[in-house]
Amino acid sequence: MKIQNVVMAGSLESNDVLVTLRPTDNDKLFINLESIVQKQFANRIKKIIDDMLNEFNVESGDIHVQDRGALDCTLRARLETALSRAEEGR
């Protein structure tokens, strides 16, 4: 799937993560991660993001993830919500 419209899920509150998906005008995939625990967990978070993008077959889009200390299951939930919304064309 290509991200074709702007979609948001989650929030910037503590323990949550804000996922914003935007279309790109070239057919590339950009992943931008900001995390308050960047140093320790960036790799783990990136892996979760990659797995989720694979699951949804995302070919292109601007994926912006702003983490505020979310648990893995929260991150997965927000990614799944955003990607499902993108799929539905919301």
Partner: peptide
């Protein structure tokens, strides 16, 4: 509604 549903499902799974 979709967002809450997915989050609660994940919480049930994991915690």
């Amino acid at each position: 509604k979709d967002s809450a549903r997915i989050l609660v499902r994940n919480a049930l799974e994991t915690l």
